[in-house]
Amino acid sequence: MLLQYIANGIAIGMAYAIVALGYSIVFGILRLLNFSHAAVYAFSANMILVFMGWHFGIWGAVAVSIVATGLLAVCVNQFALKPLRKKNSDKVANLITTVGASYIIQNLMVMYLGSERKTFPFFYDFGVSIDIGFYTITSAQISMFVIAGLLLVFLTLIIRKTKVGLAMRGIEQNPLAANLMGINVEWIIAIAFFMGGASAAVGGALIGGYYQLAYPSMGVMVGNKAFASAVLGGLGVLHGAAIGGLIVGVLECLIIGYLGASYRDGIAFVLLIITLIIKPAGLFGKKNITKV
């Protein structure tokens, strides 16, 4: 049974990992915890259902929702966070603003789409399952792992190999110097938000499909787990988010298997609090030294 739980955990953990990327990318550049990310994630899954209602077909709906969610994340940046950066507000103001933005997004969805749970198509299941001894791996789990893994590799390549990625790393080290080198800082920040939103949308499609459910407040729990993954791996480090996501996913499935489902949502927080107390920088994070 143990291997079965671990296999389940790896599949769902990869999905957590790509939601966690959104926290990690934005934190890397702005040193800001983006609380609105969870609502952005929930937006993606709900929008897929809306677009399906408009006869886009499932794959079309997913594609349009990825773009729409990315744009929503950019909007949060442009309308809520950019004015604060211009005024040079303190960090607390930024944090409270993202909390406010997440409430606006989530409750506008409740108003227009209703708060009830709606069934979500299990669109990447090809009905095949592989039996290995006592446990089975479904094709859905494999495709979840492959899709999420490809996205992770893709985003890592963007950040490591392209000019945009170079600019991002430059801003992470010193925004002012990056600006003097001719980098359009606001534009790069917007791209980072778009990348975070789009990867959250892929995560929304995968997790929505896995549980076959979508509802406006679905972001609260998954957002917290993704956040715990990002902190566990080290905020601002992409492969850290991936490994953090896998650890959270596997532990969650082990808890479900051995302790029962009622404590499954607690594990992410316990892990989060322990990480923050023992090693606040996370497993792969760089230690921040406060300059006076």
Partner: peptide, 8 residues
């Protein structure tokens, strides 16, 4: 929504 708007 209003609480959120108030914060922002």
């Amino acid at each position: 929504v209003i609480y959120g708007l108030a914060l922002v």
